[in-house]
Simulated assay, not measured.
Amino acid sequence: MPEWLLTFEQIYYTYSGAKQSAVNGLTIKIPAKKKCALIGQNGCGKTTLFLLANGLYKPQKGTIYWQGQPLQYDRKFMMNLRQKVGVVFQNPEQQLVASTVEEDISYGLCNLGLPEAEIQQRIEQALVDFDLTSLAQRPVHHLSLGQKKRVSIADVMVLKPELLLLDEPTAYLDRMHTRHLMSTLKNIHAAGTTIVMATHDLDLVYRWADWVFVMDRGRLVLEGNPQDVFTQRDILEELQLGVPLIYEMLYAADEFAEERAVLERLRQRMLNVFREF
């Protein structure tokens, strides 16, 4: 497998009627086998990047490469790409199309024209992998939000993608469902899938990610491992992103230590003055 799965080179995309580009000269490389986080303010281009990544949108300028090969926008190439690059949207309602959980998971497989026996085997395995066996015949509209998110991920992973793109996967989930989801993602990554997660949860990014991309106004402005990125406090504050809680605590401790040092120097000066008298 090449070092980079997906590469954007000087990509531009502007929505119809918009005054500014959603993606504005974006150059970014997604490293294979990593857990990557994508952070930035709303409107910075994160979701557009995902839609460009699996060919739902076509760039107006620039080139996107999948494993070194430029994307071709014909039906055959796109069908193959969308098996390899899976996108899970923030709102699972955008992806759930069938009546029951089992039918929904089978939807993408049926479109591939696979043998019936292989389709059934993949469905059964997905139900087990995502703890959905007891919900197989449950109507999709009867599911909780956390269950719907599990189904939407199963819908994508049943196709066995090499790259999984997740747009705010923990949004609106409580702590229990978030922990369950992160456990699921851990298993997906351990099985060999590269993951890119767009999120506003910086504490989650610090705990989970191997690599962090920071976007602003459709461009990549910073990247690196979490420790290197989150020490760039001035840049992150300028972008109004802030830093994880652990860094806030460390910065506060440093400031407190500096204040104590100043007070100690003042105390020593006062003692010296009194000694002179």
Rank of each mutant, 00 (worst) to 15 (best):
T27V: 06
K186Q: 15
K61Q: 15
T63F: 07
L165H: 07
A117N: 15
D104H: 13
W211P: 08
T47R: 01
V205C: 07
A126H: 06
E259G: 06
I28S: 01
N187H: 14
G242K: 01
D228A: 07
F89M: 08
L241R: 02
L135M: 14
L143R: 10
L5F: 10
L236Q: 00
E248I: 06
R265S: 11
D131R: 12
K46Y: 02
T194D: 11
N54W: 04
G68W: 14
G224F: 01
L6G: 00
D203T: 14
S21P: 01
L185S: 06
L271H: 07
T47G: 03
P244F: 14
G62F: 04
I235N: 00
G192W: 10
E162L: 13
S106A: 15
C110K: 15
R269W: 06
A136F: 05
T27Y: 08
L109R: 15
T231E: 01
G55M: 06
A117S: 12
N42P: 09
K29P: 00
V158C: 11
L135Y: 14
L143T: 14
T231F: 01
D104L: 13
P92H: 11
L52M: 02
W208R: 10
W4C: 12
L250K: 13
Y247H: 11
N111C: 13
V97S: 09
A252I: 05
L49C: 00
Q95C: 04
I153V: 14
A32D: 04
E124N: 15
V23N: 03
L114C: 10
L56P: 00
G68P: 04
V262H: 02
A53Q: 02
E124L: 14
A191M: 08
K33Q: 09
K29R: 07
Q227T: 12
I119F: 11
T231V: 06
E255Q: 06
G108D: 03
K84W: 07
W211E: 11
M78R: 14
D129E: 15
H180F: 10
Y57W: 07
G62S: 05
L112R: 15
N272P: 00
S144M: 14
Q227P: 05
T27A: 01
Q60R: 14
R275W: 01
E168A: 10
L112Q: 15
K29I: 01
L236H: 05
A198I: 02
L185A: 12
T100R: 08
L202F: 06
M157E: 06
K46N: 01
L166W: 08
L220R: 00
L143G: 05
E9F: 09
E3W: 12
K46H: 01
G55L: 09
E118R: 11
L266K: 00
A32I: 08
P226Q: 09
Q240C: 07
Q90N: 10
Q147N: 05
Y57L: 15
H200D: 03
Y15A: 03
N272S: 07
E238A: 04
Y65N: 08
K84T: 02
A261D: 05
S106F: 09
V128S: 13
N24D: 11
V88C: 02
A257H: 09
